[in-house]
């Protein structure tokens, strides 16, 4: 069984944010606007954060693109009272919008702050509706949403593989962010399949994960020459 994961090479990321916009386009993420931004309520499943340290002129800096970590031991699923979020058998931490009651326990439990609550009715002006991706549902107000590792693509990819009576190949299923990265910094695949690039990269000496001490066992690995 697959164990989907991601490796992000921080030495390659140049902070262009193509992944953020590709994710918004792929996953029908609504525009929050200035109001949401000022309340820190902008929804962005993928966020390029910048780490800037030091004092002028000796600055150390890097970009850290941050999607949901899809933890193997996710804290968010433990607190959900209605099992609207759970870890899938292939390691994807899902969010079932129709089940979510909007209690926001999971958003508070997440140490990576990558679960987003729809405080307002998602704003998709009528003229933009033809541009929505029909493969992803539009969320209603009052539910949590999050990065799904583009699991809707997995649904289609798996079906296509069966149509063509072949196993699922590495290039069949990838996320919109990995697809969009012009420097190839984001790699997606099956961590348990040694033929997949992520399996090799996740064992790279440069590899680390965010807040490893919490024991959440994230499946998003980062590569960096710096500690």
């Amino acid at each position: 069984m697959a164990r989907w994961g991601m490796v992000i090479d921080l030495d390659k990321c140049n902070g262009c944010q193509a992944c953020e916009v590709a994710c918004r386009s792929e996953n029908n993420i609504a525009v929050g606007g200035p109001q949401a931004a000022s309340e820190h309520r902008t929804i962005s499943w993928m966020q390029v954060r910048a780490e800037v340290e030091g004092e002028w002129p000796d600055i150390r800096s890097r970009f850290v693109p941050q999607p949901c970590m899809h933890c193997d031991r996710p804290p968010c699923t433990l607190v959900c009272p209605v099992q609207a979020t759970s870890i899938d058998r292939e390691g994807i931490v899902n969010q079932i919008y129709a089940r979510c009651i909007g209690c926001r326990y999971c958003a508070n439990a997440c140490p990576y702050t990558v679960k987003f609550f729809n405080w307002h009715k998602p704003d998709h002006p009528a003229s933009t509706e033809p541009g929505l991706n029909p493969d992803v549902s539009v969320r209603p107000v009052g539910v949590i949403e999050k990065c799904t590792f583009c699991s809707h693509r997995l649904q289609k990819a798996r079906e296509m593989a069966r149509v063509e009576t072949r196993p699922l190949r590495e290039q069949d299923f990838t996320t919109a962010c990995a697809d969009s990265c012009p420097t190839g910094a984001i790699v997606f695949g099956n961590l348990d399949d040694p033929t997949h690039r992520v399996a090799e990269l996740s064992r790279d000496p440069r590899a680390f994960r965010l807040q490893e001490g919490l024991g959440t066992e994230p499946k998003v690995y980062y590569l960096s020459r710096r500690d």
Binding site: A18, V21, A22, G131, P134, S180, P182
Partner: peptide, 23 residues
């Protein structure tokens, strides 16, 4: 109906890459 803009992998300069603005 256009629903997503990606880079054209055949383009000799951008080679499938596209900036956020293009998307």
């Amino acid at each position: 109906r256009p629903v997503r803009i990606d880079g054209n992998p055949l383009h000799p300069v951008s080679q499938g890459g596209l900036c956020p603005k293009g998307r």
